[in-house]
């Protein structure tokens, strides 16, 4: 049974039909990558799945629970979290404060107001272990704006992981990264436990093919194809729309 199910999703902006009848089914533990030329509606799809944007028609269900139509904050409650294409962090707070906020989002004490956050050991310990696990422990007292771009990109993923999601939506995790950082991030994604289902938007084809179990090609807001990496890379039509020819493996959008 699929963990995340998107059925007949439609979305338009001011008469522009951005998503047309998009359906996806993603099984538990799957690594599903969405590719498509710029403007294909990939990020809009993410926004619609997580409830950041209201959808015009269709349904989104997580684990059999319908979440479309619910406010955006409920996505995390059903175990779905996301990252953003452009770093979307708390720039003038420290790395530690950023992670604490993320960790604390689903704690029952998130509304408490008479005891310092620093004294909630559960939050503090989880924050520490996440920071250590992701090699940001040394940087914990730095203000986020002072971090390198790559580190900020890493923190972006870390924040999304803090709620212990069952499904993680990564919006171009390697965009803007140096080749070395890209390799490192790819490894991190590959190492993520299979208990986390991944839905990833990615442009870098090397990254795509090194993580994907299945690939969905989005073109003009429609699902053009959804198949295994092997079949996708062999599909001439996709090469055509995506690159106007050329080889898929080595091209970069």
């Amino acid at each position: 049974m699929s963990l995340l199910k998107v059925e007949h999703l439609h979305k338009s902006f001011k008469g522009l039909h951005v998503l047309k009848d998009v359906s996806l089914a993603i099984g538990a533990g799957e690594r599903h990558v969405i590719i498509g030329p710029n403007g294909a509606g990939k990020t809009t799809l993410f926004n619609c799945i997580t409830g950041t944007l209201p959808i015009d028609a269709g349904t989104v269900t997580v684990n059999g629970q319908k979440i479309s139509g619910l406010p955006a904050y409920t996505a995390v409650r059903v175990g779905m979290s996301r990252t953003f294409q452009k770093n979307n962090l708390f720039g003038s707070l420290t790395v530690e404060e950023n992670v604490q906020l993320a960790v604390n989002a689903c704690k029952p004490h998130r509304f408490h107001f008479l005891k310092p956050l620093a004294r909630y050991t559960e939050t503090v310990e989880e924050t520490e272990s996440l920071l250590k696990q992701w090699d940001l422990w040394e940087r914990r007292s730095r203000v986020v704006n002072e971090l390198s771009y790559g580190e900020q990109r890493l923190l972006e993923v870390l924040l999304a992981l803090a709620s212990k999601p069952k499904i993680l939506l990564l919006d171009e995790p390697t965009s803007g990264m140096s080749p070395a950082e890209t390799v490192q991030t790819t490894k991190l994604i590959q190492r993520m436990p299979r208990s986390i289902t991944l839905l990833v938007i990615e442009h870098d084809m090397e990254v795509v093919f090194s993580i994907a179990d299945r690939i969905t090609v989005l073109h003009h807001g429609e699902v053009f194809a959804s198949d295994t990496p092997g079949n996708i890379s062999g599909d001439e039509r996709i090469k055509e729309i995506y690159f106007g020819g050329g080889t898929l493996q080595h091209a970069e959008a």
Partner: peptide, 22 residues
């Protein structure tokens, strides 16, 4: 300094991310 206060600060800093965090 409380979880509530820190969250409010986070909202001032970046409301859309706070929503995304739940």
């Amino acid at each position: 300094a409380s979880p509530f206060g820190k969250s409010v600060r986070g909202i001032k800093e970046n409301e859309s991310r706070m929503t995304a965090l739940g």
